[in-house]
Design a protein around this nucleic acid. Structure first.
Lengths: 187, 187
DNA sequence: TAATCTATATACAGACCTGTATATATAATG
DNA sequence: CATTATATATACAGGTCTGTATATAGATTA
């Protein structure tokens, strides 16, 4: 990938998160990235296309990072589930955390026919699906139910953290997750 | 309050939720409300002022409805806490549910200096504070911690429900809340 | 050196936005 | 009937936005 294209993606990711997607114009993006609109529209067919690529890259980065951590940090399926939120807390509190794109995007694009909304919705579903697969391997009865509950905690905490950095919400989400996982494992 | 003013507030509440705040122009609002911009700007000094009043009214409606339900539906403090999520589920699944304004608003106005963001943040804090007071009355040790966990579940579920109506997320949030509350009460 | 490819600089069209100015109609009140 | 308050109709100024058109600079390759 061209270095200019990745630079634009990086800058857009940052600006979308800190200023909002609709409130960030392409002029601002190219100015910060140190290039021009002509170049941006060479690599991206439209602003919507740029938004979709930003979302896509953010989600891929997160998912591959997370599954790597889980696979290398725990062997037993139940341990993987237990440690999930510790890795997520690392991600959230790391300096290069820029929020979960799909949470913000779904709020700014509420229309269900919008491609941006649809991608956000799909990413949220994929994340739940990943948790559910971990729960299934750990022999949790209602794996989908637990996955939904854990994802609610996760998304709520990310939102709280986005609203006020250093809120410590993820710490309490982690405690709650442990209680829910323990309960689901014994039953 | 003038009937035209309340009509504008009602329409704006609906459009902000279904189309997004920044994506809804005042021209659209007055067209749907059946009036003109001149009238809107007589009752509201600016669009930002309209947004703030919409948020304010939405939160007041929710909080007064919720505390009425809690007070009339349960006497023992621990029962109030237990039944909280049942009332919230009623609210969320009721036909006139239009989402929680402050969740969307904080996503669309991420700048912490924005008055809209500040009001959203304050409303989120007030809601947590309300849950914490119920937990305190029920003699929960870490009332603030439990309140934060419950609010994470709540906000996550509302977001999921906004993302896809009829997702049933609140049903699972309720189950998770019961587990967390039970654990906090016995310890 | 000449040709080609990539990025820049700049301007602009067309659309949408907020907020206001001006003039008119309609209803209530003296 | 006359006056006054309220709402409408309409136009527009000034700004921002996306996306494109045109012309130019710089670097790489033949």
């Amino acid at each position: 990938m061209s270095s200019l294209k990745s630079k634009i993606l990086e800058v857009a990711t940052d600006l979308f998160q800190t200023r909002g997607i609709n409130s960030t114009g392409v002029d601002t993006i190219v100015a910060v990235a140190g290039t021009t609109k002509m170049t941006l529209y060479k690599y991206f067919t439209s602003k919507e296309n740029l938004i979709l690529e930003v979302l896509d890259k953010g989600h891929q980065d997160f998912q591959s990072w997370l599954s790597d951590q889980v696979n290398s940090g725990a062997k037993k399926p139940s341990d993987k589930l237990q440690k999930l939120f510790e890795f997520i807390e690392e991600w959230v509190t790391s300096p290069n955390f820029r929020g979960m794109g799909f949470i913000k995007a779904s709020a700014e694009f509420p229309n269900e026919e919008s491609p941006v909304h649809q991608l956000s919705s799909e990413q949220s579903r994929q994340f739940r699906q990943y948790i559910s697969s971990l729960a299934s391997e750990a022999n949790v009865q209602d794996a989908d139910g637990l996955a939904l509950q854990l994802s609610l905690l996760f998304e709520g905490a990310v939102q709280a953290e986005q609203m006020k950095r250093g809120s410590g919400a993820m710490k309490y989400a982690k405690k709650a997750a442990k209680i829910l996982i323990d309960g689901a494992l014994v039953s």
